[in-house]
């Protein structure tokens, strides 16, 4: 009689590859986010509203808006990313998913990287896609709008990555939102400077490859270092609660 292995007795293979785990985390974050579309929409609405405030609050003149447009859009994008950061770990923290994540055999910083990238796809990318419309509304020129979109495309992942550190540090604290902004805004300043500076240079007709390359360097630096800090901060915050 041929002995066939009894399926129920065979130990299931629990070890999942790191890449598979990262993909799973990434897809899960996207899925859960799309179940609550309002949370996705809010940062975008905020972005549009902040941009609207400037023509109303300062001046609707074409010359002013043309000059300040890139700065307005960058600051608004920065603030809306900041606003959305609170959600990055909050839900997972509340329902215990985060603890499971920390207990996984895969390196935590890679899972954190996957989460940060998911956060970027959910907030940064839509902001970039919305930028051309708002750029036209603040009378920016075509070339400047293209460069602005490029800088946002490179810059917003940096915002998400650095922001994940702040979100992890302030996890589970009272008034985490304000504290998070306080910790993170100083770290955002270089990205803002180079983001708007590049657009200004482009508007003056100067070459921008060097600045874009430098922003790319920021992105690489953030990609390599931020997940480590964020993972360390997560462990600290979880051991606290």
């Amino acid at each position: 009689m041929a002995t066939e292995p009894v399926i129920g007795l065979r130990s299931p293979d629990l070890s999942v590859g790191t890449v598979t785990a990262m993909k799973a985390v990434f897809v899960r974050d996207l899925k859960t986010a799309f179940r609550q579309p309002q949370d996705l929409l809010n940062p975008l609405l905020f972005f549009v509203m902040v941009v609207t405030l400037f023509p109303l609050g300062v001046s609707p003149e074409v010359s002013f808006l043309q000059q300040a447009g890139s700065g307005i859009l960058w600051v608004a994008a920065l603030l809306s990313v900041l606003l959305s950061l609170d959600h990055l770990y909050r839900h997972d923290f509340d329902d215990g998913t985060l603890e499971q994540l920390v207990l996984q055999p895969q390196p935590l910083f890679l899972l954190v990287l996957a989460k940060s990238l998911a956060h970027w796809v959910l907030t940064g990318l839509p902001l970039v896609l919305l930028t051309p419309v708002l750029g036209i509304m603040v009378h920016m020129e075509g070339n400047s709008v293209v460069v602005l979109c490029l800088t946002l495309l490179i810059g917003t992942p940096v915002l998400s990555l650095i922001g994940s550190i702040g979100a992890a540090l302030t996890l589970g604290l009272r008034s985490a939102g304000v504290l998070l902004s306080l910790l993170i805004i100083p770290l955002y300043i270089p990205v803002l400077i180079f983001g708007t500076g590049t657009v200004t240079a482009a508007a003056e007709g100067a070459p921008v490859e060097a600045q874009l390359a430098l922003m790319g360097a920021f992105l690489v630096l953030a990609l390599t270092l931020a997940p480590f800090a964020s993972a360390a901060a997560l462990r600290i915050s979880l051991s606290n609660s």
Binding site: I162, I165, L169, L183, P186, L187, A229, A232, A233, I236, S237, N240
Partner: peptide, 11 residues
Amino acid sequence: ARAVAVLVLVG
């Protein structure tokens, strides 16, 4: 202590 240490290092 450890959270502050992480923040200072990031800074």
